[in-house]
Design a protein around this nucleic acid. Sequence first.
DNA 1: ACTGGAAATGTTATGCTATAACAATACAGC
DNA 2: GCTGTATTGTTATAGCATAACATTTCCAGT
Lengths: 160, 160
Amino acid sequence: MTSPHSESDRAGPDGALERAERLCRARGARLTPQRRRVYELLIGADGPLTAYELLRRLAGDGGNPAPPTVYRALEFLQAHGLVHRLASHNRYVACDHPGHGAHGGVFLVCERCGHALEWSDEDVARVLTHSARAAGFQVGEDVLPEVEGLCPGCVEEAGE
Amino acid sequence: MTSPHSESDRAGPDGALERAERLCRARGARLTPQRRRVYELLIGADGPLTAYELLRRLAGDGGNPAPPTVYRALEFLQAHGLVHRLASHNRYVACDHPGHGAHGGVFLVCERCGHALEWSDEDVARVLTHSARAAGFQVGEDVLPEVEGLCPGCVEEAGE
DNA sequence: ACTGGAAATGTTATGCTATAACAATACAGC
DNA sequence: GCTGTATTGTTATAGCATAACATTTCCAGT
């Protein structure tokens, strides 16, 4: 069975924040206003954002944030699995289902509209690990390979 | 069966260049001295290089190359499948088996020593494509997902 | 409450990665 | 040789990320 994540992990735009609060509290990690704000911006964003896009949106709140502000928030959020970095596009995206680590998934990144879908699939993880082992290679814990392609909406449009 | 590539594609350090020459000639593409030099540098390199590392090595040949010089050469080489970009590390690496496109493989990137192994595996390609399709996603032609982990040598050392 | 230390944030500066824009040159086909 | 296209040279700039150090905030222990 293939699925983005189990039903119990899903949450609306608000639920995600509450869940992040809980997760951080449980770990004794401090989800400060800055970090929370960056997380909110990513949750509310229409697709992955660059660090500097986040910076501009933070600046919109008032204040005079500098790059380290946003990078530090991202570092924290990534460390707690709340955010992933899309290395192929220098962008950051809120995680669908924090608390899991990133076991057994891929990022499906649309090369047309830029949207990214985090897709969990045990089969992918198993085959990837197995294949790598044949090369003597030990796959890391939280790998989330990025796969370029066309999302459902863009497949349609491209077909017209 | 899993393998880095078929025996017939393999080539020594020199063979790779000759093969590139043939490939370009067959396509009517011009493997100019600049492009050839960048390709040589990548073939001879001990692991993936950044564009600016290449630039410094070009400068060592004399002349006064600027960034566009190396980026243009890389663009050409990538277009012909002679070089891949390792997006996760902003690095470039010569391709093991040009002429194929990149069908059905992954990049195994060592998080310790930085080396990258291009690993062909039909199973990986099949499962990835199948899994993505379940999300309504159409995987692109030449995707080569990057997987972080430990290479054989570094697994050993880490075990000590 | 007070305080000492650690964590978080502010601030300035800088390095690395990549491309835009336009000029000059080299090359292939005629 | 001429002409148009591809390639390379050159200058400038945009975009991504972190180093280093100052300041503030927060919490624990008293």
